[in-house]
Write a protein that binds this DNA or RNA. Structure first.
Length: 825
RNA sequence: GCCCCCGUAUCCCAACCGGCAGAGGAAGGGGACUUAAAAUCCCUCCAGUGUGGGUUCGAAUCCCACCGGGGGCACCA
């Protein structure tokens, strides 16, 4: 008697069995045919959400499929366990962040186990564990030795809500990426990683990432913002040191009619010191400082500035041009100073018109008559140089290079490249992160903590409440007061902690050697697995994690600890899971809890539902009905698969000689193997499932028509179970055993299709006349072109459209298509 | 403003290198089974591919322009 599909019992039993057997453990040293498959480790806030389920399921299907294809597969997991939400939860509840974090990790893990993810549980780590963050500190010291970690005073993004500074990457449209509060600009002394040293390599090596989509590469290119141009040196009257400006259009130098400094530029202060302009500048600076970053960078606001009473000398013609400060010039970009060419730059033009500064045309369009006095907007396009001495007539295509070369020869300029990317600000004024391993000695100043004193552990007793003044760690007096590693005299520890993106910038290396006590990882072991063959995760990390980790990889390479310039040349970005077009959230009430879904319909049905929803990269709008969608779509199909399997005699009793219906069914099995394999290769899980549904439909139709050949049905079901196993691991394992096998379906080799069996005996040839389908004819798959033409011309329908004339042109694509072009009558 | 991605049945989604627009699912309609219903099984309806041009024997697919949606960058010199 056939059993029903009791998914809860089946899933519980196999889940425990696999874990007890350490079924997904990977070897330390892989064979040459290995696959390192990694999905971004989660942040343990609450339980898993649907976004996790989607990407982990995709990742798991890839890992399991790779195993069946004979690869050594490493599919690890860990937790990104440091970070602000834990600390905020701890403050609200009056507990230690550690407790909240570990409670959530336990929830995550239970859900992951039930969902059947084939992670290698022996390699798990938590980044808040001193055994992990010790190596953040170790790596920090290596960066420090090479000048890649440094402390400097700079304008920083301060989140008034989270009471910490943020990296540029963590500010979205002027707001804190985590809490949404508008960030403030503060001049603070902070720790930075010198990522700008790697800006060129970060752009150039994007080309090595052949498995990235264009969208992501474009986001990173935009973010890094490489801008080739020139530096030009100006002399300001009465100032000893020359001032350098950056420009992308040195060919417009002859059109510079004024010179502008950023209001905060130290030189501005110096220029007006003791003059009548001094007080006005102070007032103007205060005005600018009172603007938020959003206002300051708005293109809508009229530009403001003031003359400083000094003149700069244009290096190309010695002309005296007035020096101004203006709010549209930013201290952070380029050199904080510009030459203003109003005729050919929109911003300079706007400013010149509001302050009645001269506009001089130095680029003219062919046949154009641009006039500085009358033009209504800047001409920033191409043309040829005018009013530029010997360079008149030089076209824009070559002018930038020609002029810059000439400036170099004169010693007044040089080719250079500017970047939008800023150095990565890594210090945070919060508790729950890696302590920065630096102490400050009265005598020796900033001193790195020696390697043998690592880890610098987080103290337990701390007042977490951020004050905005000092970091919480400053309240742990016993911890802060230490001794100088050099002289032994009293010293104070650095009280800022590291950005948690430091943790995630190298974690995939730690999985490869997770218990190493001497090094973050053994390069020899890591290099055997690296780079990651398939990485997966959200595109929300496009300019954060995905740029930082690439930077780390390059530094590791320069340290001799890595061989590969890119850590994850192939990356899959899953789409967002939404409901009603908006992100799922508790407060909005548009949420489906994974536990609810697998509780009602099972992990297999939920996994399959996520995979069936569409291509992995596409956003997925969950139907508003909620979990019921699983009960309407993939759960009934799994029951259908279950019933089909139950119709197979486990004793393996043979069937009769196969007749035409059985041969047709067998052909369908092999065609399914062929296309499903192709779909897996393309990560096209939704179409793979559709193909399997088709096969199941065929089997049902065969049985509904009275067919019951056990041999062919068993072939079909066994192939189906193998093809489905990476996506729905439980039902396939259970039925594989019920069919009488003692081993695991997950240890089976991936099925191979028989090309002879998969091929059709007859092909359908489409006959087009003038591009329109006029007839279809059954032909042999290996039909010759001449035979196709003969058959096509023999068709009455075709003759009707040729009007009895011979075709003027014949295109054949054997065996599927022949296209005839009728002669013009 | 510049750049990237996407527009296909009522809905979700297919369509390889340009070659019969439809694989799958949902919803809808009909039928079988049943005393009846549910469940199950079978059958079935549904668009000419956002719009307008172009290239081609032939365009959902390639090119151009536009419209709509999503995203990135943006007083970046």
């Amino acid at each position: 008697m056939a059993d029903n599909y009791h998914f809860t019992e089946i899933e519980d039993r196999w889940s425990k069995q696999w874990i007890a057997d350490k079924k997904w453990a990977a070897p330390v040293h892989p064979r040459p045919n290995s696959r390192y498959v990694v999905t971004m480790y989660p942040y343990p806030s609450g339980d898993l959400h649907m976004g996790h389920v989607e990407i982990f399921t995709i990742n798991d299907a890839i890992a399991r499929w790779s195993r069946m294809r004979g690869f050594d597969v490493l599919n690890p997991i860990g937790w990104d366990a440091f970070g602000l939400p834990a600390e905020n939860a701890a403050i609200r509840r009056g507990i230690n962040p550690k407790q909240w974090t570990y409670d959530n990790i336990a929830k995550h893990r239970a859900s992951m186990e039930r969902l059947g993810y084939s992670f290698d549980w022996d390699r798990v780590f938590y980044t808040c564990d001193p055994a992990y963050y010790k190596w953040n500190q170790w790596l920090f010291l290596r960066f420090y030795e090479r000048g890649l970690a440094y402390r400097a005073k700079a304008a920083a993004n301060w989140c008034p809500n989270d009471m910490t500074v943020l990296a540029n990457e963590q500010v979205v449209a002027g707001r804190c990426e985590l809490c949404g509060a508008e960030v403030e600009r503060r001049y603070l002394t902070q720790w930075f990683f010198r990522i700008t040293n790697y800006a060129d390599r970060l752009v150039d090596d994007l080309e090595l990432n052949t498995g990235w989509n264009e969208r992501l590469k474009s986001i990173q290119r935009n973010w890094i913002g490489r801008s080739p141009g020139a530096e030009v040196t100006f002399v300001i009257e009465g100032v000893d040191d020359p001032v350098t400006v950056f420009t992308t259009r040195p060919d417009t130098l002859w059109g510079a009619t004024f010179f502008v400094l950023a209001p905060e530029h130290p030189l501005a202060e110096q220029l007006v010191a003791g003059s009548a302009y001094e007080q006005d500048l102070a007032i103007f600076r205060r005005e600018v400082a009172s603007l938020t970053e959003i206002d300051r960078t708005s293109t809508e606001r009229p530009k403001k500035g003031m003359f400083l009473g000094k003149y700069a000398l244009n290096p190309v013609n010695g002309e005296r041009i007035p020096v101004w400060v203006a709010d549209y010039v930013l201290l952070e970009y380029g050199t904080g100073a510009i030459m203003a060419v109003p005729a050919h730059d929109e911003r300079d033009f706007e400013f010149a018109r509001s302050y009645n500064l001269p506009v001089r045309v130095v680029i003219q369009e062919p046949g154009g008559d641009l006039n500085g006095a009358t033009m209504s907007g800047a001409h920033s396009g191409d043309g040829f140089m005018v009013n530029s001495g010997d360079f008149d007539g030089t076209p824009t295509e070559s002018s930038v290079k020609v002029v810059t070369d000439w400036l170099e020869s004169q010693g007044t300029g040089r080719h250079t490249v500017n970047f939008r990317l800023r150095d990565w600000l890594i210090s945070r004024q919060r508790y729950w992160g890696t302590p920065i391993p630096i102490v400050y000695c009265e005598e020796h100043g900033e001193m790195p903590v020696p390697d043998e004193d690592l880890p610098v552990e987080l103290p337990d007793v701390v007042d977490f409440n951020p004050t905005g003044q000092a970091s919480p760690l400053a309240t742990a007096a016993e911890w802060v007061n230490t001794t100088c590693p050099k002289c032994g005299k009293p010293a104070r520890r650095e009280t800022d902690t590291m950005d948690t993106f430091v943790d995630s910038s190298w974690y995939f290396n730690r999985y490869l050697d997770p218990h190493n006590h001497k090094l973050p990882f053994d390069p020899a072991i890591a290099n055997a697995w690296m780079p990651i063959d398939q990485y997966s995760g959200g595109i929300t990390h496009a300019v954060m994690h995905l740029i930082y980790a690439r930077f780390f990889q390059k530094v590791l390479m320069d340290l001799g600890m890595a061989e590969d310039p890119e850590p994850f040349p192939s990356l899959l970005n899953q789409g967002m899971v939404t409901m009603g077009g908006r992100p799922m959230s508790k407060s909005r009430g548009n949420i489906v809890e994974p536990a609810e879904a697998f509780g009602q319909y099972g992990a297999d049905a939920l996994r399959l539902y996520m995979l069936f929803s569409g291509p992995p990269e596409a956003d997925f709008d969950w139907p508003v009905e909620g979990v019921g969608a699983v009960g309407r779509v993939t759960f009934p199909w799994l029951q259908r698969v279950w019933r089909l399997c139950e119709a197979i005699d486990p004793s393996g009793a043979g069937g009769q000689e196969p007749g035409p219906p059985e041969l047709a069914l067998r052909k369908q099995v092999h065609r399914t193997i062929e296309v499903v394999t192709r779909d897996y290769e393309a990560f096209s899980f939704n179409t793979a499932i559709a193909r399997m549904m088709e096969l199941v439909n065929e089997a049902y139709r065969y049985r509904a028509a009275g067919g019951d050949n056990q041999t062919v049905l068993r072939e079909l079901v066994e192939a189906l179970l193998k093809l489905l196993a990476p996506m729905a691991p439980y039902i396939t394992e259970e039925q594989w055993h019920r069919l009488g096998h003692s081993g695991s379906v997950h240890d089976e080799p991936w099925p191979v299709f028989d090309a002879g069996l998969a091929a059709a005996e007859l092909a359908t040839m489409v006959v087009q006349v003038n591009g329109k389908v006029r007839d279809t004819i059954e032909v042999a798959p290996d039909v010759a072109a001449a035979e196709m033409e003969r058959l096509a011309l023999a068709s009455d329908k075709v003759q009707g459209h040729l009007h009895g004339l011979a075709p003027s042109k014949v295109i054949t694509k054997p065996p599927k298509l022949i296209s005839l072009v009728a002669p013009q009558p």
